[in-house]
Amino acid sequence: MHFPTLDKDQRRILHLLRRSGALSRSALAAELEMSATALTRLSRDLLALGLIIEGHENEGHGRGRPAVPLRLAPGGGYAVGATAHRGLLDIALVDFTGAIIATHHEASDPITPKQFARRVRSLTHELVDRHGLLGQRMLGIGVAVPGPSLSAAGDRWSVVDVLPDWRDVPLREIFATEFGWPLWIENDANAAAIAEFYLGGLIRDFSTVVVLLLGFGIGAGVIVDGRLMRGQFGVAGEIGCLFPGHLPRPSPLDLLGMLRAAGCDLPSVADIDGDAKAQAATVSAWLDRAAGQLQTVCNTAFAWIDPGAIILAGTLPSAILKGLAERLQRVELVTTVCERRPPIGISSLEGSPITLGAALLPIHSLSVSS
């Protein structure tokens, strides 16, 4: 059972409930500037589709309530997100509200797109069965890839070379053939931005945000007025081009290389620990340099886009991300009206924002008016 076609006003209602939580019909009508009659008709249709329900969360069903609010229905459907990294395959399962139902992480040898799709399909069936979702509405699957799109259509991608046979192949065709579900493919930084926007709670306060993803390399996901900004050719936010690979970069792999050069025998980025005595001096030096490099990125993003938040996210330990944010807040950042400066913070999410954001791609598509 796939998702029904929704009109613009139905999407507006769902988006407002996702942003604000439970609201009465009168509050919805006022916020959306529509008549009570129109709101009643639209909400009746959404109730019939099982996408919204009445009442506050955990509320009893006593009588005499003056106004029964509407809210998103967790059982309105579920969505899946999947990513492949160096030596790891990640899956997340979320309900219609965006709440996490389950996650799965497993070690993986280098995997081709077809092998990836088959394994994800098998794991999805297992998770759906385990969590009693058989027969419920499947909203779709999102796949996040590490690399920029090679076309505005997003069918071929310049995927990093640690994933064999992924670069410049028809990923959309391969995945669609294996999955048979509604499919979204997105750059990993854009997926991370979606996760921060919804699960990180940014949607409640901001319509425009920038997420700097320190992952395999470095990239940015930009949301403007609630929409992902992709640019003319689908590569908006590819800030890695500002830091050529043969030079020092503000990326986790660059930090890992510095630590190895300093004599720390670390297998991967996951083993970086800024509190470890043998690593502390190198980590501190990298943070000082990375803050200087990202200063221009933050200043220009702030001047061009006016985001309500600039969030640092990625694979580095939160203590290192915090140290980077603190250094950025101390450097000479630009100001605009009312002495506003780039609003820099770090991710509060547990788990991979990339995989969680991939799972939210089908849900995000329902929040964007046609």
Rank of each mutant, 00 (worst) to 15 (best):
Ile111Ser: 05
Ala92Gly: 07
Ala276Phe: 09
Arg63Glu: 13
Gly147Ile: 02
Thr124Phe: 02
Ile13Gln: 03
Glu59Tyr: 11
Trp157His: 12
Gln329Trp: 03
Leu14Pro: 02
Gly234Met: 03
Ser370Asp: 15
Ser284Arg: 14
Pro148Trp: 04
Asp273Asn: 15
Glu238Lys: 05
Asn187Arg: 12
Ala38His: 14
Leu51Tyr: 02
Thr40Gln: 13
Lys8Gly: 04
Phe116Asp: 03
Ile363Cys: 07
Ala153Glu: 15
Leu242Ser: 10
Val145Trp: 06
Glu332Lys: 11
Leu127Trp: 05
Leu32Gln: 10
Gly55Trp: 06
Pro66Ala: 12
Ile174Leu: 11
Gly132Ile: 09
Gly60His: 10
Glu186Gly: 02
Cys264Gly: 04
Pro164Met: 14
Ser367Gln: 14
Asp129Ser: 15
Phe3Gln: 08
His2Leu: 13
Trp181Gln: 11
Leu88Gln: 10
Arg44Ile: 04
Leu16Cys: 04
Gly245Arg: 14
Ala67Gln: 14
Leu139Ile: 09
Gly50His: 02
Ile346Gly: 02
Ile311Gln: 01
Arg341Gly: 05
Leu199Trp: 00
Glu178Arg: 02
Asp254Gln: 13
Phe175Ile: 06
Gly215Phe: 00
Ala285Val: 07
Pro267His: 03
Phe206Ile: 04
Gly323Ala: 12
Pro69Met: 13
Ala192Asp: 10
Ala79Cys: 08
Leu93Asp: 01
Met258Ala: 11
Leu333Arg: 07
Ala192Gln: 09
Arg289Ile: 00
Pro4Ala: 11
His364Phe: 08
His246Pro: 08
Pro182Arg: 10
Leu49Phe: 07
Ala99Trp: 10
Ala313Gly: 09
Phe243Ser: 06
His61Tyr: 07
Leu202Asn: 09
Ala319Gly: 14
Glu126Ala: 12
Arg172Ser: 07
Leu183Gln: 03
Ile272Pro: 03
His104Met: 01
Ile239Phe: 06
Val235Ala: 12
Leu212Met: 08
Ala84Ser: 09
Ser352Asp: 15
Ile185Ser: 04
Arg289Tyr: 00
Glu332Tyr: 12
Ala290Val: 04
Ile111Cys: 13
Ser369Gly: 06
Arg118Met: 12
Thr124Asp: 02
Ala73Gly: 10
Arg12Lys: 15
Glu54Phe: 04
Thr300Glu: 11
Pro66Asp: 02
Ile101Trp: 08
Ala262His: 12
Gly81Asn: 05
Leu23Pro: 00
Leu28Glu: 01
Glu57Phe: 08
Asp45Glu: 15
Trp166Met: 14
Arg230Asp: 01
Gly75Gln: 14
Ser108Gly: 10
Ser370His: 15
Asp129Trp: 01
Ser318Glu: 14
Gln115Met: 10
Ile346Lys: 06
Val283Met: 08
Gly81Leu: 01
Gly60Pro: 00
Leu333Thr: 11
Leu163Gln: 08
Ala107Ser: 11
Arg167Lys: 14
Ser108Arg: 15
Leu183Arg: 03
Gly237Tyr: 08
Phe206Gln: 12
Asp95Trp: 09
Glu350Ser: 15
Ile363Glu: 02
Ala73Asp: 14
Phe302Ala: 05
Asp129Arg: 14
Met229Ser: 15
Ala195Trp: 06
Ser43Trp: 04
Val368Met: 03
Leu266Val: 11
Ala359Phe: 05
Arg249Thr: 11
Pro113Gly: 07
Val283Asn: 05
His131Ala: 06
Leu253Trp: 07
